[in-house]
Design a protein around this nucleic acid. Structure first.
Lengths: 396, 396
DNA sequence: CAACTTTCTCCACTCACAGGACAAAGACCC
DNA sequence: GGGTCTTTGTCCTGTGAGTGGAGAAAGTTG
């Protein structure tokens, strides 16, 4: 099927598209209140957008004391694909142009199987969503990968946990397969964009979004824009030294944050505690499943297991210490904690807060909320859809 | 005397003024090559700038094979005042509109004497420069203070090392005294802007500028702009924990970077080493002066004193470790080291480089220069002049 | 002195945009 | 139901921004 290919012709149109994306159906009058344009000029640009098909008429709104307004909205047939490739699973979702999730699939998978296998999986999930009637095709796709990305080209570079992906032309390949424009970014940046668009970070211009999953990373938003750094590796905080001469890390150094606290490290610690007989709760879970994950630790903690609580607290202290440094350095207006370990909930958050509030200067922490992400596993796919929509809703 | 009060009327004029500031005298044709405007429009805007007096004719240039061009330049009578208030001294300089330093004064002074005393000093230095014929008056002034600043208002907030300054309306007061527009910023940010304008960071969009003086701070430039954080305290890295359970710090915590390495900490360590008989070189200098500073340590190191070298190396390791974390987080394209301790030179730099290259991931450090600032004590005043010129050369 | 280059100015035309007049459509009051 | 007021949307005209071409001015080169 033929998809929309139009792009806004100028900055005004781009602005209007974003207003309609973020605010839903709107009348010309309402749009006029939010944009610095005369009514006549605004009408011209809206008419041009209607001609392109990106925007469609949406009936009459209720009267506000005078003539009823003719609403317009983004074409309800537009479809974006949001893909979030994690270390151990893939999320794929379809959204409309307003970035509302229409369908969402999750599939366990190991990124180390390489781009070819993962792509096959992603494409089959995309096809499944299409087959279920949610989309006749895709107008654009955003995709997040768990490693640094050369952003302009959409190519992963030197990703530690996904070796086979180095230099693989993700953007080009996926664009070819799907037949639509594609943008690629680091998964952590997409989570930040997701929380910025629809989560706790709405209307915050400078914030950090710490994602603790298999690994650990940090999305940086400065002045409303994601900061990616010169080689796309900004936010790679997993290998900051958290413990001098601490545990050996896969990267070759010792004491890296990731070696001391992350989904993987927590699971390993839990197994060790169980085997050493420090926790009956964990031991019984280990016996039952043959292995332990962060979810088990969360459950044990919820059941009041002291060892599990200690593990979480200690990890939170480590992360909190590093975040404290980042807060001093960056002076954000908000810190969001997300990723797989959010199930650890308040215990983790409390430990992080304690460290940050204790170690950073009052001026930086005085009015600094530290909160859990609001969107959970959908943050990444919403961020991915946001990424491609930002791209498509900009002048060509 | 009446000073220039005109401001650019639009973005084009602002752009032209900045091109003339950064590129010196230029013909209309040369300007046309650097700006996206037709020759006719460009001529109109240049003529308008000539009318305002901000720009003046500057004779004929040599022929390039055809008609000679009429050069224009920024009004050579324009004068900016750059003020850099450090913890222990004040720098004041006059520049022309091209930010070339015409005169520079330095005066020892303790910032803790409070804003009134410091202002008196600054104003007398500004008057001295004026009296020497370098300026008939000032068209604008930039001023840096060693602490966080609420940037839009130009007011220091909760500055740890200058308690009397909290909430003092620096911008308003200085503007009143000098009779010209004033902008205020953190001294470290100004150093970064100075190196960006005329130093090692020319043409680098993302870099860090670490200033090690009495205290320690870091200027952050992201996407060409200074990142100040939500409360103006971004870059305040002096109280990041460098050593777990380390030395007590004035801030109440332990192990802060600043407690382990800074001009003040180094001097204290040197005195201790001298008193414990660990260094004859330092001991003799202590006996001669009654006290030691970073300069003494530098001299001792240059003379081959092993203890002095050790102190520098150890300090460099501490700073390097913290910088390594910041590099992982921010992924800059350049790290500049500046401030009072640059006299420690290569020994310090080598220690920092070792730590950063060892602890940060190759992708972030692969092509990362770590260099000393190029401008020394003039970085701050040039940055200050740049700050006010950026302000005045923007549409009102 | 002729031919070619470069620079700058002038002029006509196009387009972006604002703002007012006005029409359409409804609410509200009597 | 009819007047009056409000809100929304459209049309039209005037202004100013900006482009591009013609050509004058001022050089160089041979």
């Amino acid at each position: 099927m033929r998809r929309m290919t139009a792009r806004p012709a100028n900055a005004h149109q781009a602005r209007l598209l974003k207003l309609l994306r973020d605010g839903g159906p709107n009348s010309r009058a309402q749009l006029g209140d939010q944009i610095d344009l005369s009514r006549s000029k605004l009408a011209v640009e809206v008419d041009r957008l209607l001609e392109t098909g990106l925007v469609v008429a949406d009936g009459l709104a209720a009267s506000r004391g005078g003539r009823r307004s003719h609403n317009v909205r983004l074409n309800p047939g537009l479809r974006f694909l949001g893909v979030d490739i994690g270390a151990t699973s893939v999320d794929v979702a379809v959204t409309n142009a307003e970035l509302e999730i229409l369908g969402h699939l999750n599939q366990p998978m190991d990124v180390r199987e390489g781009p070819v296998a993962v792509f096959e999986q992603v494409l089959s999930m995309a096809a499944k969503l299409r087959a279920s009637g949610l989309a006749e095709g895709y107008d654009g796709a955003g995709i997040g990968v768990p490693g640094p990305v050369r952003f302009p080209e959409g190519v992963p570079v030197a990703p530690p946990i996904m070796p086979g992906w180095d230099g693989f032309p993700v953007r080009e390949a996926l664009s070819q397969e799907l037949g639509c424009p594609v943008m690629v970014d680091n998964d952590v940046n997409l989570m930040a964009m997701g929380e910025q668009h629809a989560g706790v970070a709405r209307s915050v211009g400078d914030f950090l979004c710490v994602k603790i999953g298999t690994g650990i990373g940090c999305g940086i938003v400065a002045g409303g824009d994601v900061h990616r750094g010169v080689t796309g590796s900004a936010g790679d905080i997993g290998h900051i030294q958290a413990v001098p001469d601490g545990r050996p890390c896969a990267c070759g150094n010792r004491g890296c944050l990731e070696a001391h606290f992350s989904g993987a490290a927590l699971a390993r610690d839990a197994v060790e505690a169980a085997q050493q007989g420090r926790s009956e709760e964990l031991a019984s879970r280990l016996a039952a499943n043959g292995t332990l994950t962060a979810v088990d630790v969360a459950a044990a903690a919820a059941a009041g297991d002291a060892t599990a609580l200690d593990l979480i607290r200690e990890g939170g202290n480590r992360v909190g210490q590093v975040i404290a440094g980042l807060v001093s350095f960056f002076n954000p207006g908000l810190v969001v904690i997300g990723g797989g370990v959010t199930g650890l909930g308040h215990t983790l958050l409390a430990a992080i807060r304690t460290q940050v509030y204790r170690q950073s200067l009052p001026l930086a922490t005085g009015n600094l909320p530290i909160v859990l992400g609001e969107l959970g596993p959908t943050a990444g796919v919403i961020g991915a859809a946001r990424l491609i929509s930002d791209h498509l809703f900009s002048p060509a």
